[in-house]
Design a protein around this nucleic acid. Structure first.
Ligand SMILES: [Zn+2]
Ligand SMILES: [Zn+2]
Ligand SMILES: [Zn+2]
Ligand SMILES: [Zn+2]
Lengths: 134, 134
DNA sequence: ACGAGTCATGAGAACGATTCTCAGGCTTGG
DNA sequence: CCAAGCCTGAGAATCGTTCTCATGACTCGT
């Protein structure tokens, strides 16, 4: 019935790389990271693994301003949003109690259905700001 | 001092195509649209024009779930967000009075600066739903 | 109206991210 | 240990977007 997923060292490596950081990373960054670490994994496999993890809700995905996909394994399972540092990818999980109901209400009022929302905050984290200024 | 922009028929054509619709459109869609309409404009020019319009705040840009950029000339000049139909691009301009302050507050509390936020609502508009179901 | 100085245009090449192909490898179930 | 089939990876193929550069078209001063 349920899709069967085999346990391979590649899948484990990608999952491991994701667990090792709090920051949002692109598929290519993860690929390089694994290569440097010695657990080389094909780029195609990194992409495939990430999309299956995303489909299963095991990783969060968001898009940078220029359309690149970034992935992160979040601590929280429930629906939430992020405050992400533009330069290093560090992220903080947040939720907007009021935003949730507001979104649903507004959309419904306009006659829209199958509603989803995208709410992400971008900024420069304290560490990056310090490094940049001195 | 100020950036000088020449008035060309291509620029006018792109602006015209944008004014002719309420819906978010991709650069390629606009390019085809202009071609069909008879005002053929090079794809590169469409992209260039769109990015200059976006830089000047004359059009709003957002990214579809798979990273494609969509453009729309909004009625409102002030900061606002959108409720967009996934299938036809129809959009409604909205603002989240509470969201604005919430975003700034949350980000500042985490020590982040240069804060920006992305808030977009996606759904299926009444017309598309009707068409799909019958 | 004329011409110089420049910005704008467009066809095609180049790019960067992501997906596809497919032959060979590895997991799993028995 | 074996067969059946998912999984992998290198490279090709896509796709959206940007770059290149020779040619065309605004603008402004005359
Ligand atoms: Zn940072
Ligand atoms: Zn939410
Ligand atoms: Zn619609
Ligand atoms: Zn806002």
């Amino acid at each position: 019935m349920t899709q069967q997923l085999r346990m391979t060292k590649q899948r484990a490596a990608v999952a491991g790389a994701l667990d090792a950081t709090d920051e949002f990373r692109s598929a290519q960054q993860l690929h390089e990271l694994l290569r440097d670490r010695g657990d080389a994994v094909g780029l195609a496999t990194v992409y495939r693994t990430l999309q299956s993890l995303a489909a299963g809700g095991e990783v969060d995905v968001l898009r940078t301003e220029d359309g690149e996909a970034l992935y992160r394994r979040c601590v929280r399972d429930e629906h939430h949003h992020h405050l992400v540092c533009r330069s290093c990818g560090t992220a903080v999980e947040i939720d907007g109690p009021t935003v949730e109901s507001w979104a649903a209400r507004v959309a419904a009022a306009q006659g829209f259905s199958d509603i989803e929302h995208t709410v992400e905050l971008w900024g420069t984290c304290a560490a990056c700001r310090a490094a940049r200024e001195g």
